Amino acid sequence: MTNPKEIKRRILSIESVVKTTEAMKITSVVKLRKSKNFLIHAKTYLESIEILLYNVLLTEKKNDDDYKKYFLEKGNKKLFIIFTSDRGLCGSFNSLIFEKINSFFKKKEHNTQCLLFSIGKKGFDFINRKYRMYLYENNWINYDNFIEKRLLFTQKLITDFLRKKFSLIYLIYNSLKKSLFQEIIIEKFLPIHHDFKKKILKIPPILEPSKKKILDHLIPKLLNTKLLKIFLESTSSEHTSRMRSMHKATDNASNIKNNLILNYNKERQTTITKEILEIISGLESLN
């Protein structure tokens, strides 16, 4: 027989768990709304930069050799940048990315030609145990300070790519599909994937002060905005996953609490019945 006081203590403990998971769920909902709002603006901005860049590239093609290096793929040295969370309690958000990386690195030839870097501490812990790390600052970037560090980080990636430290740079992240469904995306970051089927301006642009200066500004801007857009997609996916996990945790904790209340009432009723029987037996013995 379980002590009713112990059951009562467990009920109070479960109630605090329910309050915590419910609060985390609400927090994730608020953050998800903000992240989705920023993501819409980032996608629109990125699309505008892409259209502008492609139209500039399609103008007179003199002296364009300097910019072919951004679009050409040479060699097999790869860098994979993974977007994970800093904290747990977000379901399969991180584990899906880790499974994708493990399946890719089953081939031994990839281990010598690939480096990994993480946006998020969970990814850093994973890479540090098994794979070769790309050295930059403390080898990972915190989610909270990514926005302020992304400009320098993008410039570092461009510099290393142009110096041929890497021939390919990929981004691996969770993308949110149809509100709740998540998909692992492996997207090429450098060299730039050019699609000249994009919308072309009807009137050729007038390039001032020069095409070179415009491209020197547009290409880093394109890559920086792309990195931001993917970060926001990953953030939205993380908040969605955490919201779902906390919702399930709240439901499970509520079910446990209801079962404990039922057991508490049974034990309490049994105790009361036992005490009544003892009183009756005492009265009969006196008579």
Rank of each mutant, 00 (worst) to 15 (best):
P4E: 06
V29E: 15
K19C: 02
L222W: 12
K221A: 15
M24Y: 14
I169W: 12
R9G: 13
L260K: 02
K229R: 12
E47T: 02
I158D: 03
P220S: 09
K266G: 00
S237H: 02
R87K: 15
I141E: 03
G75Q: 09
S281F: 07
L157M: 13
S210A: 09
E208L: 13
D195E: 11
K199Y: 14
S16Q: 14
K69A: 12
E6G: 00
I279F: 15
I82E: 10
L201A: 13
E267H: 05
D160F: 10
I169N: 10
D216H: 13
Q182T: 10
N145V: 13
L157Y: 04
L260P: 00
K149F: 03
P220D: 05
Y173K: 03
S85K: 08
H110W: 15
G91V: 04
K149D: 07
K248R: 13
F196D: 05
I101W: 09
C114P: 05
L157R: 07
I127W: 10
H41S: 14
K226I: 03
L79N: 08
T21V: 14
L283T: 12
N37M: 05
I219T: 01
E60V: 07
K36Y: 00
A42I: 02
K211M: 06
E137F: 07
K164H: 12
N259E: 11
R268H: 01
L152G: 02
I49Y: 02
S245G: 00
